[in-house]
Design a protein around this nucleic acid. Structure first.
Length: 920
RNA sequence: GCAGGAAUGGUGGAAUGGUAGACACGAAGGACUUAAAAUCCUUUGGCCUUUACCGGCUGUGUGGGUUCGAGUCCCACUUCCUGUACCA
């Protein structure tokens, strides 16, 4: 009988639906295992074969764990808010919800065909009010909390208010935008508005004037991880820096914990490293430089306190508030001109130019260590957002300061013995200090490391500054001037922001007449009618960013229909956190930081039990497209085959990969593809037109998209699953090659054929050979799945089937084991076999086979025998032979004589079970 | 620049420090077929030797090292990928 994948797959998919096979429930006392995929944004283009890669891997793992006896939670949903649907809405006037729902339906249809074991009863969508109620709820909780740095946790803002009323800021160590100092009396004397403004400085969700990435084309601000190389990640529009009043999340307060807790989770080293870089911890010192003739100091941050004697000038960021206070009348014009110039430049222009620019303020500061007066400059190479927005410049040992000093002809003092600073700075933190001494401090002769430590001690003792740890991680900007997102549960009363009562949630996204800003430049929600509270107070017009809804979704899956809590205590205590999280590495600095932050916040409030959301994480690689090219001879309509193209002047043209098979072009299809190719001529090689190829991103414009539906229709879901896993290691990016899929399909057909030959009524014990084949397979597959080495386990199935065929095996027992082992990979076929074997229930509930080493033992061991490290022949030795016996056998083997050629061996090394090496 | 990773046949890729190239694709030859598709069998890193069997040499980006033995470990270099970038 033919292997009819369509009939088999449809039948079992229906069976799974009818029996709710994949529905998960809490089973106290049974070990849980939570496997999660990063939920997709349902784009209009649908899925291509690259998308399911990670889903297939996690599905195999889920099924494997389930067969091993775990209670597995494996849910799926949609990250439904996002810019593309809104951009489409702006162009067409169609409500983004409508587009999104249509895309979700299409995704679901595609996903269902692949036979995943998702528990769809737990499906969530971030744009569903029942879901975003909890996104808004978390925001309210963050608004009502502050971060206590002493206890390293979030606490209710009411406690801080009580403290202020009693003791002012004394004894407060809270994360804040600006260090404030006031007494209880001062606090109590503040107006409502002043108190509200003061508390904003401490809230975890706060509103503040911050430098933001403004994208004019998208009409919204963007978070740091949504901007790359000065353009928006979505759409590639230019982004500029602008000061705006925005909602922010105080993610920076959690920087130390986000860094430390990386050590407690099983993520790849490269991903942890990416997070460490993004968090960017650096140890250094904050130092105050008194300004000549003024009553204030400039604060700077440095990691190179040892270079204090080489400071020849200071530099402020253009946005620094000190610039206006320091500029002298003579320099005013020049400084203002420079500031105007800088503010006009976008981030991208600043990066591309990388030109040294700056201006002198006219003021001087005193180096607190050397006592020397140094000029204060302004330049855009200093960033306002990092450290204090001001630096001490040491041109001899910092390349940026060096370029600046050279350009403006400022002095350069070398501080390290042997450093040649005539051409470039010496940035390395090594060597012996020179030129670094006065009556108070002597660093000369010290190693850099010692000098840093000594200077830090000196700074603290002298009260010049303090030792400080700085983080690069900034607070997340949480406002988007957009329509398609969660509305903020915030209203304004007397100019003061208030959060709504939790019982009023969800605050539903209102209807608008267009998805564009209003004529007065307000966000689209400014168009909503009656966008006010019951009492008539205006509601916030911005919406939340994409990462709002995706930060805690893994918690919601645990208890998705609960209307009283994000997740019930029972469900959270049972499922705890994600045991295995699978997704792309593009989320390394965005989603994975925000999610960890969000989880830690809820953890601080005692609402979840685990401090980290994702225990183990696997990044799947991308599947790239393989584009095909034809070569048109210049100024003709003649195309030359790849092997001959070097003889002509040619232009490569991408062609649809559906017209190409094994790199050979279907000429008729090509001629009818486009009118201009209708009368194309071809120069062939061996009667064929051979195309060139390139590995590129899979995209419509490159004509290289492969649709999983087509593959499923032609070969079946099981073939697709097997082949995607067979392509290579899951973490690696690799090109899709439809040609190779025949291998996976042939294997399944052979397996089907083999199974069809069995007499299912005849149960016999396995032969020794069968036992060995099967136990070898169990061992390999079990270990490979645990190690995420799915490509080698697929290969192992192929080998095992070949061995069974070679042994002319018709053993039913062996095939039953095979069925259980292959069930995670090819669930439809396995289910079919399982029922043909007369088993009850679904194969997903069958027990995972266990191997017995005893069956893997050989009577004899094959030893490679080497001479001087080079293997020369193979030797069969009884398994129980000891070292001496193996050595004797090797030396007396007929082959040995030839290689010894009469000589006596100097040494014979026997590694039991491995090798015999004879040194002559 | 910095950080992380990679480099193995025509291709995708296998190899706890122990027979390099599993498995698959492709290719070549053959069987079946009127023919094609499908299926099955054989060969398939390179070079040399041989009528054939049998053999031999060489080979995992480059150069060194450790080791009885290195694709694997160490050092240096080259190239490529991925992330990040005026972070003081």
């Amino acid at each position: 009988m033919e292997y009819n994948h369509r009939e088999i797959e449809q039948r079992w998919q229906q069976y799974w639906r009818d029996n709710e096979t994949y529905r998960a429930t809490e089973k106290p006392g049974k070990k849980k295992f939570y496997v999660l995929d990063m939920f997709p944004y349902p784009s209009g283009a649908g899925l291509h074969v690259g998308h399911p890669l990670g889903y297939i891997a996690s599905d195999i793992y889920s099924r494997f764990k389930r067969q091993q006896g775990f209670n597995v939670l494996h849910p799926m949903g949609y990250d439904a808010y996002g810019l593309p649907a809104e951009q489409y809405a702006i162009q067409t006037g169609q409500h983004p919800e409508k587009t999104t729902m249509a895309n979700i339906a299409r995704y679901r249809e595609q996903l269902d065909k692949i036979g995943f074991s998702f528990d769809w009863s737990r499906e969530i969508r971030t744009c569903d009010p029942e879901y975003y109620k909890w996104t808004q709820w978390a925001f309210i909780r963050m608004f009502n909390s502050y971060y206590d740095r002493k206890e390293q946790k979030a606490r209710p803002i009411s406690e801080l208010v009580a403290h202020f009323a009693e003791k002012g800021t004394e004894g407060v160590d809270a994360a804040c935008s600006k260090e404030l100092h006031f007494t209880a009396a001062e606090w109590n004397a503040m107006s409502e508005k002043e108190k509200a403004d003061t508390l904003m400085n401490y809230r975890i969700a706060y509103q503040g004037e911050t430098m933001v990435n403004w994208c004019e084309a998208l009409g919204t601000v963007l978070a740091n991880d949504e901007v790359s190389e000065g353009v928006s990640v979505r759409g590639g529009h230019p982004v500029e820096q602008k000061v705006m009043n925005q909602w922010c999340l105080r993610v920076s307060a959690y920087a130390p914990r986000l860094l430390d807790d990386l050590n407690t989770i099983e993520w790849s080293d490269s991903l942890k490293e990416t997070q460490r870089n993004w968090i960017g911890r650096s140890e250094g010192a904050e130092m105050r430089f008194p300004v000549v003739g003024k009553d204030f100091d400039l604060e700077i941050f440095t990691t190179r306190a040892d270079t204090s004697f080489g400071v020849t000038f200071m530099v402020l960021a253009p946005e620094s508030k000190y610039v206006q206070q320091l500029v002298t009348p003579e320099q005013k014009e020049a400084v203002d001109a420079y500031l105007a110039e800088v503010s006009h430049k976008t981030e991208r222009e600043r990066q591309i130019e990388k030109k040294v620019s700056g201006v002198f303020t006219g003021s001087y500061a005193v180096n607190p260590i050397s006592g020397k007066e140094i000029p204060i400059w302004v330049s855009d190479y200093v960033l306002a957002g990092y450290g204090t927005g001001a630096i001490m410049a040491v041109p001899a040992h910092d390349s940026r300061d060096y370029a600046f000093a050279k350009h403006f002809n400022l002095p350069i003092i070398p501080l390290i013995e042997g450093a040649d600073v005539s051409e470039e700075s010496f940035d390395a933190k090594e060597g012996k200090m020179i030129n670094s001494a006065n009556e108070k401090l002597n660093l000369n002769g010290l190693e850099v490391k010692e000098a840093i430590a000594k200077t830090k001690r000196f700074i603290e003792e002298e009260g010049i500054g303090r030792v400080k740890v700085n983080y690069r991680l900034r607070d997340a900007i949480f406002s988007r001037q957009r329509y398609w997102g969660e509305p903020f549960p915030v209203y304004y009363k007397d100019g003061i922001a208030h959060v709504m009562d939790e019982s009023d949630l969800p605050l539903m996204l209102p209807e608008v007449d267009a998805y564009l800003p209003t004529s007065t430049g307000e966000p689209p929600l400014g168009r909503a009618k009656n966008w006010v509270t019951k009492e008539g107070y205006p509601i916030e017009l911005c919406t939340m960013p994409g990462f709002a809804g995706s930060s805690a979704y893994y918690l919601r899956y645990m208890d998705p229909r609960n209307n009283d809590a994000l997740v019930s205590k029972e469900a959270d205590e049972y499922w705890r956190n994600v045991d295995l999280y699978v997704g792309g590495s593009e989320h390394a600095t965005g989603h994975l930081i925000y999610s960890r932050f969000w989880n830690k916040f809820l953890y601080d409030l005692g609402l979840v039990v685990e401090p980290e959301p994702f225990r183990k994480l696997v990044n799947q690689g991308m599947i790239q497209g393989r584009s095909s090219f034809v070569y048109r001879v210049k100024d003709t309509n003649t195309f030359v085959s790849k092997g001959l193209k070097n003889q002509y002047d040619v232009t490569p043209i991408r062609v649809d990969i559906n017209m190409v098979s094994n790199d050979v072009l279907d000429i008729d299809k090509f001629r009818s593809w486009r009118p201009e190719f209708a009368d194309a001529e071809f120069i062939l090689e061996d009667g064929k037109y051979v195309c060139g190829y390139a590995v590129e991103k899979m995209s419509k414009s490159m004509f290289n998209v492969v649709n999983p539906d087509d593959i499923v229709d032609r070969y079946g879901a099981d073939t697709l699953r097997l082949y995607e896993m067979f392509l290579g290691p899951i973490e690696q990016s690799k090109p899709w090659d439809t040609n190779g899929i025949d291998g996976a399909n042939r294997f399944l057909k052979k397996l089907w054929g083999h199974f069809g030959k069995l007499d299912l009524s005849k149960r016999e014990p396995m032969t020794k050979g069968e036992l060995k084949t099967m136990h070898k397979l169990i061992k390999k597959v079990t270990q490979d799945i645990e190690n995420f080495s799915f490509n080698t386990s697929v290969a192992a199935f192929m080998v095992a089937l070949n061995e069974l065929t070679a042994q002319k095996s018709t053993n039913v027992e062996a095939m039953e084991i095979f069925t259980r082992l292959i069930a995670p990979f090819a669930p439809h076929l396995a289910e079919e076999f399982w029922h043909q074997l007369g088993k009850e229930g679904s194969v997903v509930d069958s027990e995972w086979p266990v191997y017995d080493e005893a069956n893997l033992k050989e009577d004899t061991v094959k030893y490679p025998v080497s001479f001087n490290g080079k293997t020369r022949f193979m030797l069969d030795v009884p398994a129980e032979a000891d070292k001496a016996a193996v050595e004797a056998a090797a030396l007396s083997a007929p082959d040995a004589e030839k290689w010894l050629s009469g000589k006596t061996p100097k040494k014979v090394i026997v590694v039991p079970g491995k090798i015999v090496n004879i040194v002559i």
